[in-house]
Design a protein around this nucleic acid. Sequence first.
DNA 1: GGCCAAAATCGAACCGGTTCGATAAACCCG
DNA 2: CGGGTTTATCGAACCGGTTCGATTTTGGCC
Lengths: 336, 336
Amino acid sequence: MATVRDVAKIASVSTSTVSLALSGSDKVSAKTRQRIWDAAKTVGYVPNPVAQSLARGHSDMIGMVIGDVSNPFIARFFKEVERISLKRGHMVIVSDTDTDPARELGILRHLKAQHVAGVLFTPYGNSPEYVEAVQEFKLPMVVLDHKIGPIDADFVATDHELASAMLTEHVIRLGHRRIAHIAGNRGLYSAEQRLAGFRKTIAKAGLQVDEDLILYGEYDGDRAYECTMRLLTRPDRPTAIITANNMMGLGALKATMDLGVACPDEVSLATIDDVPWGDVIRPRMTMAVQPIADIARVSMEFLLERIKRRNELPIQPREHLFVPQLVIGQSCARLG
Amino acid sequence: MATVRDVAKIASVSTSTVSLALSGSDKVSAKTRQRIWDAAKTVGYVPNPVAQSLARGHSDMIGMVIGDVSNPFIARFFKEVERISLKRGHMVIVSDTDTDPARELGILRHLKAQHVAGVLFTPYGNSPEYVEAVQEFKLPMVVLDHKIGPIDADFVATDHELASAMLTEHVIRLGHRRIAHIAGNRGLYSAEQRLAGFRKTIAKAGLQVDEDLILYGEYDGDRAYECTMRLLTRPDRPTAIITANNMMGLGALKATMDLGVACPDEVSLATIDDVPWGDVIRPRMTMAVQPIADIARVSMEFLLERIKRRNELPIQPREHLFVPQLVIGQSCARLG
DNA sequence: GGCCAAAATCGAACCGGTTCGATAAACCCG
DNA sequence: CGGGTTTATCGAACCGGTTCGATTTTGGCC
C-alpha cells in the first residue's frame, strides 16, 4: 500500500503538500497539484480511511440503528440509504436492535467510539433518561419514525396520524361503524399518533370510539394475531380492523384465515405500510403505503448536511413528514 | 475522551504498560494491572477503535457483502451474523450489491481500505478475472452459497443439489412425471447445482428430462413469473414446477393465480427456501428450508478462526454443507 | 534592483493507540 | 553476597494521514 510519504517522495514535495493537493485545496499551485496527482496515480495511492478517521476525528461511516431488518419495509429503506451513501463516499454500518432501547444505547456507544460521521436512528425508547443518553452522544443524527425530544436531531417520518386517518375514513365511507384498531407499542410515538388519527377520524364522523376495540399489538405479527382472535370471537365483533403496520396486518389476516372468517365478506382489513409479497396474498390488502425512497432521500439529505456543518453552530432541528399513499385492495367490503 | 496517556499518568506507568495491561497481557504484574484497571475505570477510559485499527493494521469490523437484503432469507441471516459478531466484539458493515459482480469488487475494495477484520461474501461473479480479483484482496473470507475458486476462503452453504433432489423426489413420489424446473442464474454455482440435483433425481427415477421444461429465472420473482406463464400455457404443460428459491416460488404462485390455474389441483409447486409470510399465503408452499441460524453460526465460526489466525500460515480452505429440511405444505397434489 | 505582500511549500506536532528492543528491578542459586 | 536469569516496565518508533504556524518562493510595483 502506497502512503502519502511515497507520493511525496516521487513528486518531491512534503507530505503536507500531498495531503493538501489531494484534498483539492486551492493553496497548491496547479502544476504541483498535477505532479502530485500523477505521482499518486503511478504508485496507485489510495488514502487510508482509518488514518484519515484518526487524524480528522471522525470517519466517513454512517451508522444506521433500526429495530428489525427482517421487516421488508426496513430492508428496502436500508438499500436506498446505502445507495445514496456510497454515491457520497460513505459506508453504512447497520445495527439491528430488536427494538430494545438498552441495545440501542449500546450500539450508539459503539458507533460513537467508531467516530462515525452520523447516524440514522429509529428510537424505541422514550424515557427521559433514555432521551438524555441519546442527546449526550452529540452525533449528527436524523431520527426516523419515532419522535423523541427535545433533541438536537432532525426528524423524518410518514405522517402517522394522516396514514391511519386515511384508512379509517376509507372504511367509514364504505359504511363500517364498528371499527377496531390494533395499535403498535403503547407509548411509542408512531403508535400513539396512528391511534390518534384513528380516534379523531371516528369522532369526526360522529361515531363513538369503542375502547374495547382498541388493542395494542406492539407492531408484532403474532401479537396482532392474538388481538384479532380476541376481536373476532367477541359477540359484537367489529366489521373492520385497521392495523398499524404491515406485520400486524398479516397477523390479522392469518387470524381470519385460521378462524374461517371470510375477509372481506365478514370482516374488512386495512393496514398501514406496504405488505410484502402483496401480489400473492389474497385478498389484496388495502393499505396506506409509505414512500420509502423519499424518506431515505430526505433523511440522507438532512444527515449529510449535518455532517457537513459538523463544526459550525448547532442546526435548528428540522422535521419532514410524508403523506402516505392509499392503495385500495380487495380487503375492505362495502357495508349495508 | 480519556486516552492511554491519561490512564498512564494516573497509574504512574508508561503508556506501553497501560496498553499491555488492558489487553490482558501476562507480562504485567498483578498489582500494576489492578492499578491500571482502577485508573482506567476512574477516568472512564474506553480504547479508541480507530486508533487501534491504525496501529494494528486491521479493525474489528466484519464486512458482509450480499446480493439483496430485501430477501427476507438474507435479512434473517444478517440478524444472526450481527448477533454473533456483537457478542464477539465485532461490528458489521453490510453492503447490498444487487448481485452485480462489479459492485461486489468495488465494495471489497472499500472494505479492504477500511482494513476490516474479515468478510462474509456471497459472490455472484465467476469469471477467472473476477476470482483473481477477489483472491487478490487477501482478506480473511468465508464464501457463502456460491462456490468460486480455487480461492483461499472457507465455503458454507446448503447442499444445493440435495435440496432440489429432495423436492424432486417428493413430487415424483406423488406421481408426477412432467416436472419443470425454474433455475437461478445461468452459470451460477448454486443455480447449476440445484439444477443438477433436479436432473439427477429425474434420471434416477427412470424418467426423461425434458429440456423444454428447464428455464432460468435468475432467482428473480418477476422472471419466474414469466417462466411460469410460458410453462403453463404450453399445450403439454408440466404437472409440477420446482423453483430454485423463494422469490421465484412466489413469482410462480402469482402466475398460477393470475392465470386461474389452480394450485395444487392443476399444477403442483415446490420451492427451495423458506417462503416469507408463508402463513398467509395459500396454498402453503412445500419447500426445502435452509437452516439459517446454523449457516450463520458456522460461517462466523470459520471467519473468526481465520481472523484469529490471520498472521499464521494460510488455513486449508474448509467447506461445510447443510442439509435442508423438507417442509410439506399444500402446494403439491398426488397424481393419478 | 530592491522591497513587500501574497502565494506556495514545508516541518513538526498530533490523532490514540501498539509493539519491540532496551533498561531496570526482582529472583534464584551456589 | 555476587553473578546470571527472569520478569516487569519503559522509551521511542510507528501506523498513515491532517493541520497549522513558520518559512520560502514568487510576483508586482516603484
